Simulated scan of single mutants.
Amino acid sequence: MFGFKTIAIRGLLALSIWHCAPMACDAAETATPSVPVQLTFDRPLDASMAPFFVAAKNGSFGGEHLAVSFKTAAGSPEALARVARGESELALVDINELIRFRDKADAAPIKAVFVLFNRAPYAIIARRSRGIHLLSDLDGKTVGVADGDLSIRLWPALAQQNRIDTSRVKFHGISAAVREPILSAGQVDAITGFTYLSAVNLRDRGVPASDLTVLRFADYGCEAYGFAVVANPAFAAAKPDAVKGFVRALIAGINATVRDPARAVDEVMSRKDDGELELERLRLRTVLADNVLTEEVKRNGLGGVDPARLERSIDQIAQDFKFRKRPAASDVFDGRFLPPVEGRLIN
């Protein structure tokens, strides 16, 4: 009798396994495969990119069935070119450079799908000891401008808006490698750059914060947005759900970065060959306060734009850049990939 029961149980187990096996196979076959996505940063890695690496580390990208890899380029034009050629599906670039890019006769119709920097990081960083406290104090001063600097391209609009006589400000072309050193050495009175790069780097060079004046363009009427994620048009059209998933994962990465910035910086440092931990922590705090967590973002959520503000920022670019055909805000930003506002609010 015992033997009969054993045989019966074994038979039932076998039958159970036989029925379950096809379901297991079906589940494996229907599992959503990961979509490969390459994101190109337009510059070497730093703490401002922390949300992307946090999203990769904590599984947010994987949870959206995305296999995200990262590369760097030598500036926004190169990153945009890679996206245009389809070498990268996405890139993080200066949205103002995207606006200029779209003016080319043969430009691919690349659009931004998520704005990371609600406020551009453009600034003039000056020495208080040279008598510079306000933008108007640049009268008669010498400002160092590095090759390829993006801040200087909005200077004409800023100067006009603040009634600065541009003939009274001398701009001195320099190499990007010596931008901070020549200011710390006193060879110029100020430099143009980004708040979270030049201003932070100068403190690392021994210039006390009390001797630095950071003249943020945004504080003087510049309405430009900053860095944004742009998408290859063909990829966005073929795999819109992948772009939407990337945006959701990035939002999760931003929220995680805001909750634990120290851990976020650690994740960046694990991917860098060099860099100083405390410097990168200061860099991230600066970015979050100045560029990401603005009052507009707190009201309207991450990632989007105010179309009227974007239009005005394009007008400001036009004071230095001669458009063949001025693009509209809708030519630059595509909000279809954003989740509803409630899914974009800072937790």
Rank of each mutant, 00 (worst) to 15 (best):
Asp42Tyr: 14
Leu138Met: 12
Gly11Ile: 07
Ala249Gly: 10
Gly131Ser: 09
Val265Glu: 05
Leu284Phe: 05
Ala47Trp: 02
Phe117Tyr: 15
Thr294Glu: 07
Arg281Phe: 06
Leu92Tyr: 12
Arg336Trp: 04
Val268Arg: 00
Val229Gly: 01
Pro156Thr: 05
Arg179His: 08
Cys222Trp: 05
Pro51Ala: 07
Thr72Glu: 09
Ala24Gln: 11
Pro339Trp: 12
Asp315Ala: 15
Ile95Thr: 09
Glu89Met: 10
Ser34Gly: 03
Lys322Arg: 15
Ile7Pro: 01
Leu13Lys: 00
Lys322Ser: 14
Gly11Met: 13
His19Cys: 11
Ala107Lys: 06
Gly253Met: 06
Glu87Leu: 02
Ala157Pro: 01
Asp320Met: 10
Ile152Arg: 08
Gly303Ser: 12
Phe337Pro: 01
Arg100Gln: 12
Ala14Gln: 00
Val287Lys: 01
Leu45Thr: 07
Ile125Glu: 03
Leu39Lys: 06
Val83Gly: 03
Leu250Pro: 00
Arg85Ser: 13
Ala112Val: 05
Ile174Trp: 10
Met269Pro: 05
Ile9Tyr: 12
Pro109Arg: 03
Ala242Lys: 01
Arg168Glu: 14
Glu223Tyr: 04
Gly245Ala: 10
Asn232Cys: 05
Phe194Met: 11
Val54Met: 14
Leu302Pro: 12
Ala209Met: 05
Val145Met: 13
Phe4Ile: 11
Ala199Asn: 07
Arg309Glu: 07
Ala228Lys: 04
Ile251Glu: 01
Lys298Gln: 15
Ala81His: 07
Met23Gly: 03
Leu135Gln: 01
Val292Met: 11
Val35Phe: 02
Asp320Phe: 12
Phe235Trp: 09
Gly245Phe: 07
Ile174Phe: 06
Gly86Ala: 07
Val287His: 10
Asp137Pro: 04
Pro156Ala: 12
Ser330Asn: 02
Pro240Trp: 07
Val207Thr: 12
Ile174Ala: 14
Tyr225Phe: 12
Thr286Ala: 13
Ala157Gly: 09
Leu212Asn: 04
Arg43Thr: 08
Gln161Glu: 11
Asp204Asn: 09
Pro33Ser: 11
Asn201Gly: 12
Pro44Arg: 09
Pro340Val: 13
Ile110Gln: 10
Pro33Thr: 09
Ala74Cys: 01
Gly63His: 05
Arg285Trp: 02
Thr257Ala: 03
Pro156Glu: 11
Tyr196Thr: 02
Glu223Ser: 15
Arg285Ile: 00
Phe246Asn: 00
